[in-house]
Simulated scan of single mutants.
Amino acid sequence: MDCRRLGEAGPVVSRVAFGNSLTAGNQLADDSAVACVRAALEAGITTFDTADVYSDGRAEEVLGAALSTVPRDRVVICTKVGRGAGGGAGGLAPERIRSCLDASLKRLGTDYLDLYQAHLYDDATPLEETMRGFAEAVAAGKVRAVGVSEWAADELAEGARLAREMGVPLVSNQPQYNMLWRVIEREVIPACEPLGIGQVVWSPLAGGVLSGKYRPGAALPEGSRAVAAKGGDNSLRRWKFLQDDTLERVQRLRPLAAEAGLTLPQLALAWTLHHPTVTSAVIGASSPAQIAGNLKALDVALEPDLLVAVDEVLADSVVRDPDLTLSRMLRRPRQA
């Protein structure tokens, strides 16, 4: 497994990370979720991403149990704090960061986190206070590096400025990024590059849509994330990935993938990793077999003609509007 430094001062992470947002404690029974983590380890994945809000903390517990027999210095453990506060005060206040961090460490069965990420932006707390909370966690030795998730470009720039002043290693952003969802390209990536902030992207397969298993006009397949995972259907519909036109265009990618000797999931993952600012891509899995199959994408160099053909097929199904960065979307007033 190829590994790279995350940002200028972050941990060395595997090019593919394993995440459990809709699997552990949700779509999968604990033994199946643990089997997926072990398959990821066997495949050479060293980096594991979760959050305290996933399945109300159960996802962290399952991950901690699965990694309990692995030497701590051989894995990179990343989790998040903030989301789930309902937008109210205290989401990323120092005292909440402090209490949530201790709870996460306990569930994960570790003394420190390699990466602690702000899960969305908290408008109710001054950013100086949020960064102070992270600085305290770093000074206490409980956190090695800090990241954020789904922040807009202006939020990232101000957060990085404060981090430098407080001596906090702010090294990463975790946005959604895939062939269909490219909202970070216009503003977020240009903002991050001079700041030394790397991208650890989630949903490289667009929640499974880019695997081709969702067919236009057909019922959602049994056992799929959209059916078996609590919240899976809602998340896919939120991003409009399940529209028939989009699903039809995804099916038209099959011959392009086959011509390159790839499956659709492999093409999607290879496309995401092809972007030079993507340090790592977070994948999930509902079975151990999915992991080994998808990781074949690591050995692929996509030809320029193939990249052009992908864009031509997907055309206006690709979402590029930077205002759809999640932190901005959630701040919009709801329509009456």
Results as ranks from 00 to 15, higher is better:
8 E>V: 12
10 G>A: 04
11 P>N: 10
11 P>M: 10
12 V>G: 04
16 V>W: 05
18 F>W: 03
18 F>A: 01
20 N>L: 12
28 L>I: 07
31 D>T: 11
35 A>M: 02
37 V>Y: 06
40 A>T: 01
42 E>D: 15
44 G>H: 03
52 D>N: 12
52 D>H: 05
55 S>F: 11
56 D>K: 14
63 L>A: 09
73 D>K: 14
74 R>W: 00
75 V>G: 06
81 V>A: 15
81 V>N: 09
84 G>H: 01
85 A>C: 00
89 A>D: 06
91 G>M: 15
94 P>H: 05
101 L>Q: 00
105 L>N: 08
106 K>H: 05
112 Y>P: 01
116 Y>I: 01
119 H>I: 04
119 H>R: 09
124 A>Y: 02
126 P>H: 07
127 L>C: 12
129 E>H: 11
130 T>G: 02
137 A>V: 03
141 G>P: 03
147 G>C: 01
152 A>N: 06
153 A>W: 13
161 R>M: 06
165 E>L: 15
171 V>H: 08
171 V>P: 12
173 N>V: 04
175 P>F: 08
175 P>G: 00
177 Y>P: 03
185 E>Q: 02
187 E>I: 00
204 P>I: 03
210 L>P: 04
216 P>H: 10
217 G>S: 06
219 A>G: 00
225 R>I: 13
229 A>W: 01
240 K>H: 14
246 T>A: 09
256 L>Y: 09
259 E>A: 12
274 H>K: 10
280 S>F: 04
280 S>I: 06
284 G>T: 13
286 S>R: 13
288 P>G: 12
291 I>N: 03
292 A>G: 01
294 N>D: 14
304 P>W: 01
323 D>N: 12
326 L>D: 03
330 L>S: 00
331 R>M: 02
333 P>T: 07
